[in-house]
């Protein structure tokens, strides 16, 4: 794959890559952007090379996941040092999320909260399958684990997320929202 082809493929998957990077970085946009920079740099320098054994998207997601893990490890000590700053940042973020709550649906926020409570592996499998429309085999390639392991994480993750969402009343809210939407549609249709 030459340089122009590589750029075209990176551009094609850019938005999805950003979403996956967000998921790998605990939904921190600054970290996700930094990880994307590093991934593009690796691809441009040839440190990460696509060999065609899997789809480009699977390969790219695996690189993003590995880079995010490396950066998290590298920033481990810095996180300790910037503990105070981080705490302040978190409070700012929580204020921001409170403001967002005015505009966004409560269901979406409860869903995000439930996702944040889940174990990392289970969250990753669900994200890859439901968000990025990958198969379980492709998810196994991205995560670097066996298909059986991914299947287990997938089933457990689904059950756990369901329970968390039931506890927060998301399903009831979603149902009523859907009913409202259908009501609006039927009213406009009539």
């Amino acid at each position: 794959m030459d340089d122009s082809e590589l750029r075209a493929e990176l551009e094609r998957h850019h938005r999805e890559s950003y979403g996956w990077a967000l998921s790998c970085c605990s939904r921190n946009p600054a970290e996700a952007e930094s990880v994307l920079h590093s991934v593009y740099l690796k691809a441009l320098e040839g440190k990460a090379r696509y060999d065609g054994r899997s789809s480009f998207k699977t390969w790219l997601f695996a690189v993003i996941r590995k880079t995010a893990a490396d950066e998290r490890r590298r920033n481990f000590l810095q996180l300790f040092r910037l503990n105070q700053l981080e705490r302040r940042d978190l409070t700012e973020r929580s204020v921001e999320s409170f403001d967002e709550a005015i505009y966004r649906s409560e269901i979406q926020l409860a869903f995000r909260r439930a996702l944040a409570q889940m174990p990392k592996r289970q969250r990753e499998v669900l994200q890859l399958v439901f968000y990025h429309d990958l198969s379980l085999a492709e998810a196994a390639d991205v995560m670097g684990v066996s298909l059986g392991s991914v299947r287990t994480h997938y089933e457990r993750g689904k059950n756990r997320l369901r329970r968390l969402m039931e506890a927060s009343g998301v399903f009831d809210g979603a149902r009523s929202e859907r009913e409202n939407n259908t009501g609006v549609v039927s009213a406009t249709e009539t």
């Binding site: 979406q108 439901f130 968000y131 689904k158 369901r162 998301v170 399903f171």
Partner: peptide
């Protein structure tokens, strides 16, 4: 519903 929320 989970799938829809992920798509959202």
């Amino acid at each position: 519903t989970i799938r829809e929320l992920f798509q959202q």
